[in-house]
Design a binder for these strands. Structure first.
Length: 485
RNA sequence: GGCGGCAUGGCCAAGUGGUAAGGCAGAGGUCUGCAACACCUUUAUCCCCAGUUCGAAUCUGGGUGCCGCCUCCA
């Protein structure tokens, strides 16, 4: 059973082999910190967290670097708008990001370098490129000479000729070639700047990642990740810079996750249709966000709207309801029927196979649902005192929680989480709790009076408001219908 | 204008050469005063056309539709 990854560079799945036995280095392009992150940013955070968790499960010691871009044009503009200094602004949003991460309960990143703390590395890197004659300075700007890197365009599958044929090219007067990109740009009056051999200025967008990646992980790394939109030009340019600088192959595996859509449109800051991760987690729940984003394969587009959110809530309700039942049944015994044991082992295997196949999370989740059904089947076919049922409950809970760790999912307290889901839906559907409670009392009396017609009418009317009643031994409880279409 | 991706049941979504995972919704049944939960059963031939093959959703060619990148973007 080997891990296979889709490599953007080769456009196919490849067997994963680390550069060094038992060790994996991964670098993921992190956020430009001038605003709260939207859920598109979170797709990468959540996906690569799973990648890291899975690699660790496979026995690798992983170093995961996620950078902060804390100086660029957008940051400068925003800081002027907000009348804050650049560092005040970026520190604020870095802190906000870290708060969001703690809400997600994912594995912490090992290193989170900042661009502004690597200016020496960046300058050294640029000097190295100039020394190799692949970069040139003009009036305080330094540009990378794309023609000097013969495999330029290999990652994105573009050739310079194709790009040339496009009409979106906007040549800069100082560039030798329209596709040369800036490594160092001179500071304008009043802008934050750093000293360099070419005058005060700041780094271009792409060089920081090459420099920080090199500083923390060395010449060659195993995995480099990011959003699909970074393939060109950002990652293409990183390859050019890094491979020219070290004369070595920079990255073994390029991994890119696809976009999130909102309705019919790509969700993006420039379109202004973003949902902030924090807003989503506050309105709904981090667990829902994680489940939703992982329920679709990472290389597919994912539409995040209310309907999809409700679907995720339905799915989580099914899993957590079974977990809650299992908790109430289990008593420490771990002996289940042979069939159930086999099924459990099978689920572990299927999840592993799914994740090993380029992180096929839908396959992994499908087998988790099979496990849920198998457990519910035990509940419905065995007596409540059957020790084999108690054993099944124990194994079931352990299985879901073990597997859930890869995704950083399914670790919530079932009863608390289900109540939280109810609260979310009560709010979403504007359910009047007092009214429901009063109708419940009325119905209970009607049932005591054997006035079943009235009791049924009340139940039906509540159902129209998405309130479902459960008549149990200890009275009637209610919950919100979370299976909405 | 250049380059690339996608098109699977009512909805979401895996599968990428041997006769369609999973979730939601729907139908029938068990349970129930009636329900709900849960369980059991059940619901598709994979955008269109042509081709390769013993055999294709899966490969090739053409068409249609949607989307992305080429500009900051995850």
């Amino acid at each position: 059973m080997t891990l296979r990854l889709y490599n953007t560079r080769s456009k196919q799945k490849e067997v994963f082999k680390s550069l060094r036995e038992g060790v994996v280095s991964m670098y993921v392009c992190g956020p430009t910190v001038y605003d709260l992150l939207h859920i598109g940013n979170f797709r990468g955070v959540i996906f690569f967290n799973m990648v890291r968790n899975w690699l660790e499960y496979l026995g690798y010691s992983v170093t995961y670097v996620l950078n902060f871009t804390d100086i660029d044009d957008k940051i400068i503009v925003r800081s002027q708008e907000k009348q804050m200094s650049v560092s005040e602004l970026t520190e604020y949003y870095i802190k906000a990001f870290q708060e969001d991460l703690s809400l997600l309960s994912i594995t912490p990143h090992d290193v989170t370098p900042k661009c502004t703390e690597h200016m020496d590395d960046i300058v050294t890197f640029i000097q190295g490129l100039i020394a190799k004659n692949v970069a040139y300075e003009v009036d305080g700007s330094v540009f990378f000479d794309v023609l000097s890197f013969k495999s330029y365009g290999q990652l994105s599958g573009k050739s310079l000729d194709d790009l040339e044929a496009g009409h979106r090219v906007d040549p800069h007067p100082n560039k030798r070639d329209p596709f040369d990109f800036v490594l160092w740009k001179p500071a304008k009056e009043g802008e934050p700047c750093w000293e360099s051999p070419w005058g005060d200025g700041r780094p271009g967008w792409h060089i920081e990642c090459s420099a920080m990646c090199h500083a923390h992980l060395g010449d060659k790394i195993d995995i480099h990740g990011g959003g699909i939109d970074l393939i060109f030009p950002h990652h293409e340019n990183e390859i050019a810079q890094s491979e020219c600088f070290t004369d070595k192959s920079f990255v073994s595996y390029w991994m890119h996750h696809n976009f999130i859509r909102f309705g019919d449109e790509k969700m993006s800051k420039s379109l202004g249709n973003v949902i902030k991760g924090r807003d989503y987690m506050t309105t709904y729940h981090p667990e829902i966000l994680k489940y939703l984003l992982l329920s679709v394969h990472y290389r597919s587009e994912l539409n995040v709207d209310t309907k999809q959110t409700y679907h995720a809530i339905s799915a989580l309700t099914r899993i957590y309801t079974a977990l809650r039942d299992a908790h109430s049944i289990m008593d420490g015994s771990t002996t289940a029927s042979a069939d159930f044991q086999v099924m459990i082992n099978d689920v572990y295997d299927k999840v592993a196979n799914g994740l090993n196949d380029d992180f096929n999370t839908p396959v992994a989740f499908a087998s988790i649902f099979e496990c849920v059904r198998a457990f519910n089947h035990e509940v419905s076919t065995r007596k409540s005192k059957d020790t084999l049922l108690k054993g099944a409950a124990t194994l079931f809970v352990k299985c879901i929680q073990d597997l859930g760790r890869y995704f950083s999912l399914f670790q919530e307290s079932p009863s608390t989480f289900l109540k939280r889901l109810d609260q979310i839906m009560i709010k979403e559907l504007n359910i009047d709790v007092d009214y429901v409670e009063s109708m419940l009392l009325e119905r209970s009396q009607a049932r005591l009076d054997k006035n079943f017609q009235k009791a049924d009418d009340i139940r039906d009317s509540l159902l129209l408001k998405h309130v479902i009643l459960h008549d149990g031994r200890h009275g009637t409880i209610w919950e919100v219908n979370k299976h909405l279409d």
